[in-house]
Computed example of a mutant assay.
Amino acid sequence: MFQYTDQGKVNGISGNVDINEMDLAFFNSVNPGVTVVEDNEPSTQLQQSDSGLTIKELQ
Rank of each mutant, 00 (worst) to 15 (best):
D50A: 06
G8S: 04
D50S: 06
T5W: 00
S29C: 05
E21N: 02
E57F: 00
P32D: 09
Q7F: 10
N16K: 05
I55H: 04
Q7N: 12
S49R: 06
N20Q: 10
G15K: 00
G8N: 05
L58T: 08
V10R: 03
D6H: 09
N16D: 08
D23P: 07
G33A: 04
T35Y: 08
F26C: 07
G33S: 06
M1L: 12
Q48G: 07
T44K: 09
E57A: 10
Q7H: 08
P32W: 12
N16E: 03
Y4E: 04
L24Y: 00
G33H: 01
M1F: 06
P32C: 09
Q59R: 10
D50G: 08
Q59S: 15
I19P: 07
E21K: 14
G12P: 07
T44E: 15
T54V: 11
I13W: 02
Q3Y: 06
Q47S: 15
L58D: 02
D23T: 12
I13D: 00
N20P: 02
F26M: 05
N40P: 11
T5N: 08
N28R: 15
L58P: 05
V36A: 13
A25L: 10
F26L: 15
I19D: 01
T44Y: 08
S29W: 03
V17C: 03
G8V: 00
V36H: 11
V30M: 11
Q48N: 13
K56R: 12
Q3D: 04
N31T: 14
G8M: 03
N31D: 12
S51H: 12
G52M: 05
D50W: 12
E21G: 14
D39L: 04
S43W: 01
D18F: 03
K56L: 15
S51Q: 07
S14I: 03
D23S: 06
K56Y: 04
S29Y: 05
G12N: 07
N40M: 08
V17G: 02
F2I: 14
M1I: 05
E41Y: 04
G8W: 02
N20H: 15
N40V: 07
S43Y: 02
F27C: 05
D18H: 03
P42E: 02
K9F: 01
N40T: 14
Q47M: 09
T54C: 08
G33I: 10
L58Q: 08
L24W: 03
G8F: 02
V30G: 06
D50E: 06
L58R: 13
D50L: 11
T54R: 09
D18A: 07
M1S: 12
V36W: 06
V17P: 02
L58W: 13
S43L: 12
V34L: 15
G12Q: 05
K9L: 00
M1G: 14
G12D: 08
N40A: 10
V10K: 00
Y4D: 03
G33M: 05
G12T: 02
L58K: 15
